[in-house]
Design a protein around this nucleic acid. Structure first.
Length: 460
RNA sequence: UCCCCAGUAGCUCAGUCGGCAGAGCAAGUGGCUGUUAACCACUGGGUCCGCGGUUCAAAUCCGUGCUGGGGAGCCA
């Protein structure tokens, strides 16, 4: 007999049919006469209630079933006379696949997120984390679906790279050398003898490679892991995260912003239409404002303003900031929060930033002072998307590299793309975990990725 | 990396002015019940984060280290 998942059992219309169900025990309430077993298989938030009568030949064993144990249950799916569930399984046989000893750390009560992080291998067995990781899966699918509907090609950019993409952030070095005895030449490590013959790192962004594919396939996107060795100890940063990076040929900054806004809205609406059961858990236990926030994002036009306007608003806000606002300086977290949470009360896109605070590849505006950059800020998260129109003019790009003292030689292939059929193009990066935080209301990024990597933590 | 806070039973926490280590939940045993994080009774359970110091006496005060959390910087 084939196993039926609980999500399908609960959606069943008939009753009395024989079913086979397998899963993990959330709780057992029992007596000599019979036991109630709540079984969950991860297919959905809800459990199926199993009725185990003492007439079962292994009933003495069933009485010993503990939270966390794995069972295989065969029986009849029948309407439940009790409150709280539509169906239940009248068990005809229960096989105990594995009995969890009483050291099983998850109890039938609420645990703190901090504690659950220390048992990250088991926390997906809880309602909350099961819901998080189901939504993570659904949103991954929604991302691919959105891009496919828009005619984008899904491309794969390298994880191992020799180019420090933006000079952004600390890099994880990759080497086959024995760290105690690397070969040296003139006192320095001789990377020519290393696997790739030069210094190698984990990627901090697939953007530069993605641009090459955009300038051939048209509209492309990547969706994969990214690594930053920044010693960031915040609820918004992890060392390994997943980033979505679309890159669009023949697209300017305005088109880029339109696309970013449509993208976020699509994903927010998608989870509201497809993940309501799990979302309801977050709305109830994590963030009471969640549904209002999501409605707001899905239905409102994102506010768009140039960097200079944002600075003016902050300056005349009358609010005292820890860090003073000034033209030419990057916006601080508190400034972004004020704009999106207090002033506009909805997502905000800020564009045309001063070139001094942005990387070399962003397109220089005609004022010679700002670049065609844009950041999408949302309430509670802050920056969820950072993007730009890319500099497509070879002479200006080379001048910028020189200005920033970056080695032109390592970017020879990147510059080649501006030499042969260069066209205006744009793209952005969206932190997938930050999107998940936005959608679930969860405030710590470590709780939306199964096994978070942060400074001093690579357990699991 | 900087600032602040915390670390006590398996978990969540209380522990007053420095004076015998506590509760709820969980677990074990028994009872009871179409139950809903079931319920009732009993039982067991401690490196009070580590190291050093002050003191007749330290979970409590001081120093230091480690770990976790909040905020900041950096960013997605």
């Amino acid at each position: 007999m084939k196993r039926t998942k609980i999500i399908d059992l609960l959606a069943s219309e008939g009753s009395g049919e024989k079913v086979l169900c397998k899963g993990w025990v959330r709780t057992r309430r029992g007596s000599k006469e019979f036991s109630f077993v709540e079984l969950n298989d991860g297919s959905c938030l809800k459990n199926i209630q199993v009725i185990a009568d003492q007439s079962l030949k292994n009933y003495p064993d069933i009485e010993k079933i503990t939270t966390g144990s794995a069972l295989s249950v065969a029986g009849a799916l029948t309407p439940s006379p009790g409150k709280g569930q539509k169906w239940e399984i009248q068990a005809e046989s229960i096989e105990i696949i594995d009995l969890a000893p009483d050291s099983f750390p998850l109890q039938k009560k609420r645990h703190t997120d901090e504690y659950l992080r220390t048992i990250a291998h088991l926390r997906p067995r809880t309602n909350k984390y099961g819901a998080v990781f189901r939504i993570r899966s659904e949103l991954s699918y929604a991302i691919h679906r959105f891009f496919r509907e828009q005619g984008f090609k899904y491309i794969h950019t390298p994880i191992l790279t020799a180019s420090d993409c933006e000079g952004a952030g600390e890099l994880f070095r990759v080497t086959t050398f024995d760290p105690d005895t690397p070969p040296k030449i003139q006192g320095k490590v001789d990377y020519q003898q290393d696997f790739f013959g030069k210094e190698t790192n984990l990627t901090v962004s697939g953007q530069l490679s993605a641009e090459m594919l955009a300038l051939s396939l048209g509209d492309v996107y990547t969706f994969g892991p990214t690594f930053r060795a920044e010693n960031s100890n915040t609820a918004r940063h992890v060392a390994e995260f997943w980033m979505v990076e679309p890159e669009m040929a023949f697209c300017d900054l305005a088109g880029n912003m339109d696309f970013a806004e449509a993208f976020i809205k699509y994903l927010v609406v998608y989870v509201m239409e497809n993940c309501m059961e799990d979302l309801a858990l977050f709305a109830k236990f994590v963030d009471k404002q969640l549904m209002a926030t999501l409605d707001n994002i899905g239905s409102s036009d994102f506010e768009r303003l140039v960097y200079g306007e944002a600075v003016d608003i902050l300056k005349t806000s009358g609010k005292k900031f820890e860090f003073p606002v000034s033209h030419g300086q990057d916006l601080q977290s508190e400034h972004e929060k004020y704009l999106t949470e207090i002033h506009f009360k909805k997502p905000v896109i800020i564009f045309d930033y001063p070139k001094g605070i942005k990387p070399f590849y962003m397109r220089l505006n005609d004022d010679n002072d700002t670049v065609a950059a844009m950041d999408v800020l949302t309430p509670r998260i802050g920056e969820i998307i950072g993007g730009s129109q890319r500099e497509e003019r070879l002479d200006i790009l080379e001048a910028r590299l020189e200005e920033l003292n970056l080695p032109k030689e390592t970017y020879w292939w990147y510059l080649d793309s501006r030499r042969y059929g260069s066209v205006p193009h744009s793209g952005f990066g969206m932190g997938f975990e930050r999107l998940l935080m936005l959608v679930t209301g969860i405030r710590n990024i470590r709780d939306v990725i199964p096994f978070p990597r942060t400074p001093k933590n690579i357990e699991f």
